[in-house]
Design a protein around this nucleic acid. Structure first.
Lengths: 235, 235
DNA sequence: TTTAGTATTTTGGTCAACCAGTTTTTTGGG
DNA sequence: CCCAAAAAACTGGTTGACCAAAATACTAAA
């Protein structure tokens, strides 16, 4: 054992990270709502007593993970947690080798199976209400014949939340937008099956409420059946 | 349907993204090896005919995903794909809510089960050789009583590669370092069980070579047993 | 009073110069 | 010839000034 082994790496929080933390705090606390504009870079730099470069770097970091979006010559806005916000995060992380659609779907199925089973076993009343709410919004959009990808997305995300596994939730958040994007581009979803999809969502929710993990997984697989088949064709 | 609906968003590749792509190309092509130093920011900016700011931004992006590391006043080096390179990526992405260890392990078990089963069914001869190689390096380190976390990490990563699912591989790449970090800090791995771990690794590899998905999954669960138990205690 | 046009201010984007460490080269004493 | 110390060159870090586009305030005509 060398002497050097006794020294631990000193945690240095860079100025940028401090700023990142402050901005996040403002968002989490609700002081900054989705859609709000951040104060200008100059104002922030003056207020926080640091150079504008640090502010810009902090914004870039938050933009990279999808929390902020900068509009040139206009301002920086706070994103909501929806498809647009997270789109491409996986692509960013996976720049080296672009994900193929089959891998994407295969991974999704694995996660959804796990996620819905745990949700059935662990869900709280609040979770159920949140899923129900997402389902209602989805149904409302479909009835009006409006695009409902975002609402569909939220339904599955709420289930992941109900699984009480924060990592699974984050991974779903990363992977789902990339899949949805392909759905929309290639029109995988058959227009005529909208009502069938609603029924499937309802079956899944019912199984979760009943606490029936097996049933929940079964219904989820049924729900994902079309996508699985489609990904096999593309392969 | 409004008129505006007919217009698609125009894909604009920013100067920064172009530079990112070029640097990645140099790394993928093998011209830049792990450990190599990048040309200086000034040289790059001159060569590519863009301002140094763009170069710096591109480097920051690649640094964020763990491909590069900048040494202040010295240079920028290319990272290898190992723990140090990827450490904290998940933490970066998940800044909003820090992952708890239990979720981390639970997710890992789900992915490893899937990964090892697919590896057993889909592995090529090259994959087997790569896994065998990783195992040999692991054994060599253990025999010399050196820390072998990195080699352990590579063994599991090679299995994920053999599953032929690029998304799973990336997710393992994201999640494993965060788990390993906790292992090392808290000394989860019992020193005395090193030989047992080698045997387990060997069993897993054998099942993969035999193409026996059930056996492979079984051995993997056995291998992860200690960690699962530990994460329950911490809970 | 409304509104179209204009001037001003504010915004993020970009650049070039300078700073403080690191690395390499040069140098001079042994 | 060797090698330590000084000097030069080079590195990423930081700053402030300037740019063009966007947002705002203002003005004058209808």
């Amino acid at each position: 054992m060398e002497l050097l082994e006794n020294f631990k790496a000193i945690e240095v929080e860079t100025p940028v990270d401090k700023i990142v933390r402050q901005i996040r705090k403002l968002i989490i606390s609700g002081y900054l709502q989705p859609g709000d504009k951040l104060p200008s870079e100059r104002k922030l730099s003056e207020k926080l007593g640091v150079g504008r470069t640090y502010i810009r770097d902090a914004i870039k970091k938050l933009e990279f993970v999808g929390i902020l979006t900068t509009l040139p010559q206009s301002g920086v806005v706070v994103n909501g947690v929806d498809i647009a916000a997270m789109e491409g995060l996986l692509s960013n992380v996976m720049k080296i080798e672009k994900p193929d659609f089959f891998s994407l779907v295969e991974t999704r199925v694995m996660m959804e199976k796990f996620s819905v089973r745990q949700a059935a076993l662990r869900r709280s009343e609040v979770d159920i209400a949140a899923i129900q709410d997402a389902l209602d919004q989805y149904k409302a959009r479909v009835k009006k014949d409006l695009p409902a990808e975002n609402e569909d997305f939220m339904f599955h995300l709420r289930i992941a939340e109900a699984s009480q596994n924060s990592v699974i939730k984050t991974m779903m958040l990363i992977i789902l937008p990339d899949i949805m994007k392909i759905y929309i581009e290639q029109k995988v979803c058959d227009e005529g099956r909208k009502n069938k999809r609603i029924e499937e969502h309802e079956s899944i929710l019912k199984a979760i409420i009943d606490g029936d993990g097996d049933k929940a997984e079964e219904h989820m697989l049924e729900h994902l059946h079309d996508v699985i088949e489609y990904s096999k064709i593309k392969l």
